[in-house]
Design a protein around this nucleic acid. Structure first.
Lengths: 197, 197
DNA sequence: GTCTATAGCAGGATAGAC
DNA sequence: GTCTATCCTGCTATAGAC
């Protein structure tokens, strides 16, 4: 096979893989590992039941890959905060909006599912354990402390304040899965009161 | 069988049923319907795999019964708020502490699982749909409005304020399943800032 | 490259021994 | 009344036709 044609073929394969992963992400995020049947993924992707196995070894492999991608996405988002323009408050505001964004939310829910599922593939389990919420908070602490020095944020233990705040945001995302049609982005400033007041 | 002996036998059966349900609640709340295997329930209850079926028809029946009990418990808690002593703020504080209480939390998580699971038994699905978060909020609105009149709570649409607050509390409970060993009851006053500020 | 048909297995539910 | 051994369904994963 000529080089060009080969590259095209590989690209087609990657596109198919992405199509399946995208469908799988939506369903895994909603129903968890055990609650998701391969037939559901196939239907959502608009392909036949067996075809996924031409592109992936197993259901576990798809789940594991998605978890790793979710964690990588999360890691990059948090590292990005410090470089955002604006005051510490504006930085955390932008970060929070990013967390509540639709695309990120699915990744987030997936990780939650992985945390509460039985029989999670070994690789996925490892990836999650490497990336604890502690890491996120540690990245946020310098920003928060700067905000305290500038008088924007409340006094007190930054770690405790931030873990409360992140838990609340996490909670909203989980809640939102089946939620009330409320646009949380409108409420971000009220949430930030937890830090500023 | 004499009346007394018969009553004793029935009591023994009820105790066994409670034992199984208690074990099941813990696991269902954590892993959902599909993620929970009957063998897990049996192990947690300290009995053999097949014995549960002498006391319950099916896995679905156990799940359904627990969901109904959870909703009943929730309904009673919310109706109880208005009769609590103290100011509106103190009433909502007590209610929030009750929600965050360990026993209530498992019921709450179970309902969340039911909301996000496939193939939930018909009866459980119905019970949940009868009991929407709206009901809870409607019960809370008069209390909140009284607090507004007394100047304790922030101005603004009571419904929106309360749904944000409940979502946050819900979120904390969900989060807490795998959480950080934090005692949320310590943070209730900070959460109530969402309403009072 | 995709579909349909099916093998193999895990787990829900049952039967029968004790 | 409880356990162990099995049946049977439904799902994962594979094989083979097109």
């Amino acid at each position: 096979m000529p080089r060009i044609a080969k590259a095209q073929a590989e690209q087609a394969i990657d596109e198919r893989k992405d199509q399946i992963k995208k469908a799988a992400l939506k369903i895994f995020a909603e129903k968890g590992l055990a609650g998701t049947k391969m037939s559901m993924i196939a239907e959502a992707a608009g392909i036949s039941q067996g075809l996924s196995y031409r592109y992936f070894e197993s259901k576990d492999e798809i789940f594991g890959l998605l978890v790793e991608e979710a964690i990588e996405e999360s890691r990059q988002a948090i590292q990005h905060i410090g470089r955002l323009p604006g005051s510490p408050l504006e930085q955390l505001r932008a970060f929070t909006l990013h967390l509540l964004d639709e695309d990120h939310k699915q990744f987030f829910l997936l990780v939650q599912q992985a945390l509460t599922s039985e029989g999670v593939p070994h690789k996925a389990r490892e990836a999650i354990e490497r990336y604890s919420p502690q890491d996120t908070i540690e990245q946020m602490i310098p920003i928060f402390v700067r905000g305290q020095q500038e008088g924007q944020f409340a006094e007190g233990d930054p770690y405790k304040r931030l873990i409360l705040f992140l838990s609340v945001v996490n909670g909203l995302m989980l809640q939102d899965a089946k939620a009330t049609g409320m646009d949380w982005t409108q409420e971000v400033d009220r949430l930030l009161n937890i830090l500023t007041k």
